[in-house]
Design a protein around this nucleic acid. Structure first.
Lengths: 209, 209
DNA sequence: ATTATCTATAGATCTATAGATAATGC
DNA sequence: ATTATCTATAGATCTATAGATAATGC
């Protein structure tokens, strides 16, 4: 035991992820998680004590995925700055595409319970701090070379995140309004990725005057 | 009566708006709404029967505000297309700025209970249909005149919404990560508005080749 | 003899309503 | 005599736990 007892534990975690991502903490039901996982309700408290602790596990995991997706943006090897940005945008877009429920989940939970975020605040801010410094440094170099127009790193980062993340956040509304199922429409997302790269490339291009 | 009995009714509506926008349907408590409104809990059911009906009132109202904010984008009088877009972006940005909790609220509710949206689905889709047709028509004209580069209307609309809305949606996360209070930082939002206009203008500029 | 699982239920929380009392308009 | 408001509580729902039983490793 202690070794392979984790089949059910894993089932519960997987079920919890589905339930929390779709309904949020307040909307999620521990009974519903147990049902999805195919275990009795008591098992859930046996392995994870409380709903809160189960939630923390899922929340941490998602934060990790999202933070990593942003950090990877700048762990590119040496290429011209614009090419690196294009590549970064593409990679980041694909991560979000694979995990399209994560951004809304994270935002919703932070919005409705800001205190929950404070524990990982330090993690994110330290990461983000380094990221922005590196980014600004590279921007300045490329601008000096005349490859791009100067821009603030935080501004550029928010531009990129807005374009790459928002379409996935608005997806349910869009689907409700149009009746389309965007998961089936891979062309739509391919086109969106291209558009985002196009926009950022144009934003970075030095203005000819 | 029947005439000015609505002071408390209005108090309840105002309180419900605060509670629902902050916590979402699942997180909202009718007892909490009553407390905020300064009335006893039973009053809430006296005026609005159920939590659901009270929610519907608030939800409808917010949908209206948001849909209007997008429609207004194209009720501009005659100017060059790019100027109209710049003006539209600015107006839309200010509406969201005044109602910064609305987008996340709407998206969250639709995501966690898609069936709730179906009733107003028709409203939105008919509006959006007209908007996109008009928009595409104007785009084609301006492109033919050489004022802008050709672009799909839905693509352009999603670009604009992403840039204008996402920063307000990510606000709580950003504040949690940095410790800043962005409501106090009006310079930040002014700069963001300018940046969004800058991006879209560059996106629309014909590529010189 | 420790770990895993189930049944049954306690305890907390939240929505909703019944029924009594107060306020207002006619 | 209709509308508004309050007190008290029913009823539903959900999380959590106690305690019994089954399965596993030594």
């Amino acid at each position: 035991m202690t070794k392979h007892h984790n089949n059910k534990e894993q089932d519960i975690l997987a079920a919890a992820k589905v339930e929390f991502l779709e309904k949020g903490y307040d909307g999620a039901r521990t009974t519903s998680i147990a049902r999805i996982a195919g275990v009795t309700h008591a098992m859930l408290h046996y392995y994870f004590k409380t709903k809160d602790q189960l939630f923390e596990r899922i929340f941490h995991e998602t934060i990790g995925t999202l933070v990593k997706s942003i950090l990877d943006v700048f762990t590119q090897d040496e290429m011209p700055f614009k090419d690196r940005m294009a590549k970064a945008l593409e990679m980041h877009f694909e991560v979000i595409r694979e995990n399209h429920l994560l951004p809304l989940f994270m935002i919703r939970e932070v919005a409705s319970r800001p205190e929950r975020f404070s524990m990982i605040k330090n993690v994110i801010s330290s990461f983000a701090g380094n990221l922005l410094v590196t980014m600004q440094h590279d921007i300045d170099l490329a601008a000096k070379r005349g490859e791009i127009t100067p821009i603030d790193a935080p501004t550029l980062l928010l531009d990129m995140l807005s374009l790459n993340v928002f379409p996935f956040i608005i997806k349910p509304v869009f689907e409700a309004a149009t009746g389309l199922n965007l998961n089936a429409e891979s062309k739509f997302w391919d086109q969106r990725k291209k558009e985002n790269i196009e926009i950022i490339m144009r934003r970075l291009t030095p203005s000819q005057a």
